[in-house]
Amino acid sequence: MFEFTEDHIKRYSRHILLPEVGGIGQKKIYDAKVLLVGAGGIGAPVAYYLAAAGVGTIGIIDEDTVELSNLQRQIIHSMDDLGKEKAISAKETIEKLNTDVTVVTHLERASSANIMDIISKYDIVVDGSDNFPTRYLINDACILSNKPLSSGAVFRFNGQVMTIVPHEGPCYRCLYREPPPPDMTASCQEAGVLGVLPGTIGLLQATEVLKLIIGQGDLLCGRMLNYEALEMDFRKIKVNRNPSCAVCGDNPTITELDDYEAFCQMKF
């Protein structure tokens, strides 16, 4: 059992002071195991803040390496990390921030072959992936393994966040049955994204993760938060669970995972 040292008391004092957290909540945070799919635009701030918050185990799935074009928004990486695996770079940054945190790196692409095994080692999943095949894969894997999922997406000046608690609220597939066909989506390379946007969305997801861990507040479960940065407009859209959803419905047809065709490898 995790016992607070003098350093822990100082480091986490602003959490312990919160009636909703306290020492009990801080211990829950330490005991939590959170898996991040992607250490890119969304994964970077989520990883950084969850590490600062004292999440005891953070897993990161990412096979990509750090490129100069990532540094406009992926704040966990820096110039020294160019060419390094993102998961390794994130681990090194986190270790400089907080040695209480154990970072587990998965230097592979999430697929139907590996994801169930990886997810089984974690309590909560954060989707910061940049493509529809992975988004559906992670959604389905979380439903099948009954793990809560924070789903986030960014595009240009727009972002969306939803928290999926399997069988308690809607899943991503309740909202959109199937991924869009590859030729229907904008070219990832050409879409662009405001650098701070994945920070905003990622921190909303990190907030949901901490709420899930300490069991406080109202989650974005059954509600999708839509953020328009240009208008500075936050709007919540009610989303219902679809009883005929292929994965979380009453008679699911998806009982094992499938890999959709990958049509964009660019990382946001």
């Binding site: 607070f4 008391i9 100082k10 004092s13 312990i16 002071l17 306290g22 020492g23 009990i24």
Partner: peptide, 13 residues
């Protein structure tokens, strides 16, 4: 302060 209350809170728990 604030460690006086932080430690008090931990003891209360």
């Amino acid at each position: 302060c604030p460690y006086t209350f932080v430690k008090t809170k931990l003891a209360m728990e």
